[in-house]
Design a protein around this nucleic acid. Structure first.
Lengths: 343, 343
DNA sequence: TCTAATTAGAAAAACGATTAACTTTGGAGA
DNA sequence: TCTCCAAAGTTAATCGTTTTTCTAATTAGA
């Protein structure tokens, strides 16, 4: 064990209460006494034991971040922003991966609640988050819960996500304006967010009176693997099938970064010229999209900003009276179309 | 607050001690009594409060992972492997970013020790880790400390890292075998690991009787930024300078993934043909190295495996008698050369 | 049948802080 | 001079567990 407040008290010749008050400024302490305490702290290299403090104060200074799929570096970026914001107030994020499995997600949330985190950020795997009602029942103190990236049903709370429908709409409109009419849509998996993007895709087509062809819409399986394995995952196979059976397709809109890895790998292996043979655009920006030849146009989000915003909301909520009826924030962050060489 | 062991005890009509013993199998409990306890637990949806338990037991079930630079997704991969291994035994990693700053690293380690983590994994920013001697002094119970990726001086402990010297040697030998003689070396920053790679580079040159030209060796600054910003960071500028002032250079060996982002961005912007105008090889493999045209050859490590190995060592150490004198493991994991189109 | 050993459970101490409730002292105001 | 209040401490309760120690009851051995 380390040195405790008791030994500090003994060395300083005061009671533990006085040490605590001196250190936390919770009660007036004579300058002379304070000096004795501070000296003792320095001499003993004392640091408070956070477990004892947290147990007593009923808090943990931890924020759980339950991530749908840590394979997706997109979430790491959110985490970066979140961490940056939390550390400013002495809080820490604790990540856990749901691997795109609802059952794991539920376990994760349960686990986090059991660890008595002070707030929870959830990037849900599925739409239905009603399990939260069950998990939270019977709790006296309610904790802030912020959803990011995907909008759940069955449980309402603060929410931060991109203008997915509009972003996809804008991207597909660009492809249409360039003259493309046979445009395919790929997604790494079907979830509420992907659905919004798909809607944007369809709306754009409809606006140009292009019929929606279900054969052009391909959604991958939800297994969670490393990015390297994604190169030849389900999106890769779907892309290969589509390009072989539907050579009339002239453009692809990829619904997210993971799908792009598979689809673009396929395009490369088939030695298709981009954008001449096939135009390409993706949702989500990444540093490597400028390393490809040609560089890849994208509908960009700012995930780090999502993380910082989530942190802001958490501290707002933490400051509020937990009993007060609260209006949930549903924040939509605008996407930005970044045109490069691929379309 | 949530329901505590007290209420379980009351409902089951036993003492808290009995509840604890029944739940932890630390003492024999009559089947009938146990059933009453289990029923009460179920009815109240009771879960132990980990802070109370940890306070009492003097452990935290957390492993601190102090990362040199979380911008580098390489460390996220280590973290993935580590988390996977730790979760199997009910432990959790807690990440913190040192942003390539020694002072931040020291604060982070101090912070982690104060949080009473049960073990520490450190990917150090600097060679000199003697500060640990100071931070650890006066602790009764010593905790396992595992270094990954970079070998420190001033404090000896378990260590896991790649065969950096050999990996770089092998890569540069390949370039030499292909006929290149003017080979540049880029690194994102100078640290012990980069130094090992640089040595491998030099040894290969020497073996071919090629003099080492200091003008061909460029090391970036150590600031920590996002991968997107890295595209035009110090490695980018160094590459631009070198390619303009030393057109005789025909091949580049990049010392790590971050440097590659900058260097390759420059190559692309200059519209140089790879490998005809300039051959390219990098240390560290990434999924996007096959998305570029041409695909990029790499000296691959398996960072996830590093994480798992670190976890294994931690549990070994935790099982050992902490007083026993221990032999520190210095594990070197072999790299693998993956040849693609860039050289 | 009596003693010793075993078993099952309860009581209480401990972990290391915070904090509410007391004590003591000194000074101000009437 | 007396009362009251504020300041600066101390004592003790508390958070929710685990674990040591204690007690009572049962069992085993002779």
């Amino acid at each position: 064990m380390k040195t405790s407040i008791k030994e500090v008290a003994k060395l300083a010749g005061v009671s533990v209460a006085t040490v605590s008050h001196a250190l936390n400024d919770t009660k007036p302490v004579r300058p002379e006494t304070r000096k004795r305490v501070v000296d003792a702290v320095g001499k003993l290299n004392y640091q408070v034991n956070p477990m004892a403090r947290n147990l007593r104060k009923g808090e943990s200074k931890m924020v759980g971040f339950v991530v749908a799929n840590l394979t997706n570096y997109y979430y790491h970026e959110i985490s970066r922003g979140l961490e940056e914001r939390l550390l400013k107030d002495g809080y820490r994020p604790v990540l856990i991966d749901s691997k795109e499995e609802k059952s794991i997600e539920i376990e994760n949330v349960k686990d986090m609640l059991a660890s008595s985190v002070d707030a929870l950020v959830i990037a849900p795997t599925t739409e239905d988050c009603s399990y939260l009602n069950f998990l939270l029942q019977g709790r006296k103190k309610r904790i802030p819960i912020i959803f990011v990236d995907r909008k759940p049903t069955g449980y309402d709370s603060d929410l931060i996500m991109a203008t997915n429908e509009h972003g996809a709409y804008e991207g597909v409109m660009h492809l249409l304006a360039k003259g493309h009419r046979q445009i395919a849509f790929f997604g790494s998996r079907f979830d509420p967010t992907m659905n919004e993007r798909l809607k944007g895709y369809k709306r754009a087509l409809t606006e140009y009176d292009v019929p929606v062809n279900q054969n052009y819409i391909k959604l991958g399986s939800k297994i969670s693997v490393t990015p390297k394995e994604l190169r030849h995952g389900s999106c890769y196979r779907h892309a290969r099938d589509l390009l072989e059976t539907h050579p009339e397709v002239t453009a692809i809109f990829s619904g997210n970064n993971l799908a792009t890895i598979g689809v673009y790998t396929c395009i490369r292996e088939k030695n298709l010229r981009v954008p001449e043979d096939i135009a390409f655009m993706t949702f989500d920006d990444s540093f490597w999209l400028t390393m490809t030849t040609p560089s890849i146009s994208a509908i960009a989000q700012d995930p780090e900003e999502f993380g910082r915003m989530a942190g802001d909301i958490i501290f707002d909520r933490l400051k509020q009276d937990p009993e007060a009826e609260q209006q949930h924030l549903h924040i939509r962050v605008a996407t930005k179309m970044i045109l490069r060489e691929s379309c």
